[in-house]
Simulated assay, not measured.
Amino acid sequence: MCGYVPRIAFEKHCRTYALTADGRELLATVVRVPELDGTFLEVETVVADEEELAAGLAAVRAVLGRLGVADGDLYTDAVVAAR
């Protein structure tokens, strides 16, 4: 089998907001996962090519950092732990 293989599947409920930070357009999605307590946040941006990837990732991490979200705070890991 080739290509993408899902690591885990779960249900989530989302509400997405558009924002601009440091001159870059981003999407912030507030996420609820029924099997977990709490509310989670996804932040993403679109990059034109691989050369822009580092700048896009830096922008996402900067927004998360301003909100106090650490790199290791991933809700997919919480779903795995809950199961």
Rank of each mutant, 00 (worst) to 15 (best):
R61W: 06
V47H: 09
E11A: 00
V80H: 06
Y75M: 03
F40P: 05
V63F: 15
A55S: 12
C2R: 04
V33D: 13
R83E: 05
P34A: 03
I8T: 03
E44Q: 11
I8W: 00
G65A: 10
A70V: 14
L26Y: 09
R7S: 08
T20Y: 09
V79E: 00
L67K: 09
Y4V: 11
T39Q: 07
G56S: 14
A58W: 11
E51Y: 04
D37P: 08
A9H: 01
C14E: 14
L74P: 00
D37E: 11
R24P: 03
G65H: 10
G72M: 04
V79W: 00
G72W: 12
Y75E: 14
G68P: 09
E42I: 00
A48L: 13
L53D: 02
A9N: 15
A48F: 06
E44F: 08
A21R: 05
T29Q: 03
R66Q: 15
L57K: 14
V5D: 11
G68L: 12
P6N: 06
L74A: 06
E25K: 08
T39I: 03
P6R: 06
I8E: 01
G65Q: 13
G38M: 06
T76G: 09
E11H: 07
C14H: 01
R24G: 10
R61F: 15
V60T: 08
L41Y: 04
V5Q: 12
V30P: 05
D77E: 04
D49T: 02
V69A: 08
A21C: 11
V33K: 02
Y75K: 06
E35P: 04
L64G: 11
V47C: 01
L57I: 08
E25R: 12
A81K: 00
E44Y: 03
L26T: 01
T16H: 15
F40G: 06
C2W: 07
